[in-house]
Design a protein around this nucleic acid. Structure first.
Lengths: 149, 149
DNA sequence: AAGATATAGTTTAGCGTTAAATCATTTGAT
DNA sequence: ATCAAATGATTTAACGCTAAACTATATCTT
């Protein structure tokens, strides 16, 4: 199985390394979130609100690729901590627009900066050229067939 | 932010593509497991047992990088389906050795082959050289600093 | 205007996940 | 031999996650 010319070995090996790298980088960057008491999902929600402004839950779900049932709970927890507030849309009462509170804004701004720095540090292991190569290869991999379906 | 010479942009962009690629590939390969009614964790446990033989729960947890509390539950579910059985070690009664049943062996063998084929198909988007490049870059990324700690 | 259909959000059931507390058993120290 | 410490497994509490059923509101058809 270790013969480097073996296509099966090569593919599985590449797959394993890709997964490990993603896991490791996630683990390291998520420490910045954990340090602020935020889960990855909570960070995702706050970050979406920071960069896109107030959003309804459906849009948040789409942005972080999670189900709407889940978003209800994540936002419940953020609301309990006073980081976001829900506002019922007066035009169409089905919509709840989620807003960052001042505390939420303040928190996500600093945590986002920390996470960004952690990502930079992680990627800094690779040279500029290597980062571009990696990006290109990953993109090619993701584009395979029908997108994310 | 889109200036390609910007190191922050380059790092974040590369990070995003890496994460997306890993997610997409996981999503696609996990369909093979889902088709057999197995979750990713259940697949991990069965695969460990297939390739390493009977293991105690602690070793299984270490193999799939999950907590032992979690393994208890995953194995409960596999046991309910008759895919594995627990056997109390007669030497040291703290240990439960987990064995594949015949049904479990049969299932994991076919599902493993399917998953392997799916991984091959995914990685097949890249040429042999590209796979090796990707593997090298991912490995370099993961090796950064203190391993997985 | 009435009823069907669609949409936003919530709830529920089930699995996964961790960390921490607990139980059972074994090992080590004295 | 006894008691303390270590170790494997289980349980519990809390959060995350999905799919599916459900509620409330809005829109579309006629």
């Amino acid at each position: 199985m270790k013969s480097t010319g073996n296509p099966t070995y090569r593919a599985l090996n590449c797959y394993t390394k890709l997964m490990r790298a993603a896991e490791t980088v996630t683990l390291r960057t998520s420490r910045q979130m954990a340090a602020a008491g935020l889960t990855i999902s909570q960070f995702g929600v706050l970050e979406a609100l920071l960069h896109k402004g107030p959003l309804c839950q459906r849009d948040i779900a789409a942005k972080i690729l999670k189900s709407t049932g889940n978003i209800t709970m994540v936002i419940d927890n953020l609301e309990k901590r006073g980081l976001v507030r829900r506002e019922r849309d007066s035009e169409d009462r089905r919509y709840l627009t989620v807003h960052l509170t001042d505390a939420g804004s303040q928190l996500i701004e600093t945590v986002f900066a920390d996470v960004e720095a952690a990502i930079m540090a992680e990627m800094g292991t690779l040279s500029a050229t290597e980062q571009e190569q990696l990006g290109t290869l990953c993109k090619k991999l993701g584009l395979n067939k029908e997108g994310r379906s």
